[in-house]
């Protein structure tokens, strides 16, 4: 998958599951928790989506906001794993 493809897919997942609107978009650096886009259960939905779609497995210690709190953070965190 291309880097752009990954970015688009994550945006679409967020739009469909948390914004419920394909026409609304968020900034790549916008904090998902601070801006109220996801609650703590919601972010677990996002994580299991990433694990399922990209066949990844995250360690418990990796599940911190630093890794998942924005589109850019997610991409920065999972890209090396996808290339590994």
């Amino acid at each position: 998958m291309t880097a752009d493809g990954l970015r688009t897919e994550i945006h679409q997942f967020i739009q469909k599951n948390f914004l419920f609107d394909d026409s609304k978009a968020i900034d790549d650096d916008q904090s998902l928790l601070a801006s109220g886009i996801v609650d703590s259960t919601g972010i677990l939905e996002l994580i299991s989506h990433l694990e399922g779609t990209y066949r990844l497995k995250f360690a418990d210690s990796e599940l911190v906001a630093d890794n998942f709190d924005s589109v850019n953070r997610i991409i920065g965190f999972i890209t090396p794993k996808l290339q590994a």
Partner: peptide
Amino acid sequence: SPKRAHGLAVEFWRQ
């Protein structure tokens, strides 16, 4: 729950 929810829930309350 395994640490799973923990760090993220805490982030929620940090707001």
